[in-house]
Deep mutational scan, measured.
Amino acid sequence: ELREAFAKVDTDGNGYISFNELNDLFKAACLPLPGYRVREITENLMATGDLDQDGRISFDEFIKIFHGLKSTDVAKTFRKAINK
């Protein structure tokens, strides 16, 4: 299930999730959020999830993000976006 969610976000299939891919995910989900809020959520996920600070999120980092977000608003938003 997590591998499928990761693949859905990794639209270019390079094995990593970029800032733009995350941002595009939230935009495509048509969530009722202003653009600046989408950017804040994306920046927050990148800042906390990109553990090796290479500017992208690997599958291992994605798993840690996903499990670390349990019930936060960001987690709910992220799950809604993935499930669209």
Rank of each mutant, 00 (worst) to 15 (best):
K70Y: 08
D24I: 05
F66S: 03
K64C: 03
N23I: 12
Y36R: 13
K80G: 15
G49C: 05
V74P: 14
G68S: 15
N20Q: 11
K76C: 12
N23P: 15
M46G: 08
N83W: 04
T72C: 12
D10M: 02
P34D: 14
I41K: 02
Y16L: 05
N23D: 14
V9T: 03
P34M: 04
D73S: 09
G55K: 08
D10N: 02
A7F: 09
I65N: 03
I63T: 13
K80L: 08
L22Y: 00
A5L: 14
A29H: 06
S58T: 14
L25F: 09
G68N: 13
L51M: 14
G35H: 12
G15A: 01
F66N: 02
R37C: 09
F59I: 07
K64S: 06
I57P: 00
L25C: 05
L45I: 08
T11H: 08
G13N: 13
V38R: 04
K84V: 12
I57G: 00
N14K: 15
F19E: 05
F26Y: 02
A29W: 06
R3T: 04
V74Q: 13
N83C: 11
G68Y: 11
S71G: 10
K80D: 10
P32R: 08
K80W: 03
A5W: 02
T48Q: 13
L25I: 04
E21M: 05
L22V: 03
N83K: 10
D50S: 12
E61Q: 14
G49Q: 10
V9Q: 02
S58F: 02
S71I: 14
A7R: 07
T77E: 13
V74R: 12
C30I: 05
Y36Q: 15
R37D: 12
V74K: 14
E21L: 03
I17D: 00
Q53K: 13
E1V: 02
K80S: 13
N14D: 15
I63G: 03
V38G: 03
S58D: 04
R39I: 06
K70N: 09
L33M: 12
K8V: 04
V9F: 10
V9W: 03
A7T: 13
A28V: 12
F19W: 08
C30Q: 15
N20E: 14
M46V: 13
T48C: 12
M46C: 09
I63V: 15
S71E: 14
I65F: 05
K80Y: 07
I63Y: 07
T77R: 09
T11S: 10
K70M: 15
G68R: 14
T11M: 05
N23L: 11
F26L: 14
D10T: 02
